[in-house]
């Protein structure tokens, strides 16, 4: 499963919205109606899924789904090198 698919799955679990409504460019607050507590929970679920910690400053910089996907892909690539 691609990173985008995994992120989407977690957003669906937390926000109960249709997967097809989640785009790479979706903004968590504006488009997905996620509040700060939702975002903390999603980050925790991602950490569990990918088995690494996401530092707070990195998490705070994530505004869109793409920000999250890019960050995770980069971390996975770094881990493999």
């Amino acid at each position: 499963m691609s990173v985008f698919e995994t992120v989407k799955e977690i957003i669906v679990e937390v926000k109960d919205i249709a997967a097809e409504d989640i785009k790479l460019e979706s903004n968590f607050e504006a488009d997905l109606e996620a509040d700060s507590l939702d975002i903390v929970e999603m980050i925790m679920l991602l950490e569990e899924k990918f088995d690494f910690e996401i530092p707070e400053d990195a998490a705070e910089a994530m505004k869109t789904v793409k920000d999250v996907v890019d960050y995770i892909e980069k971390r996975l690539a770094d881990d493999n090198t």
Binding site: S36, L37, E41, M44, E53
Partner: peptide
């Protein structure tokens, strides 16, 4: 400590 849900208290 980081494993505690943000929804724990509410």
């Amino acid at each position: 400590v980081n494993g505690v849900s943000p929804f724990f208290i509410p």
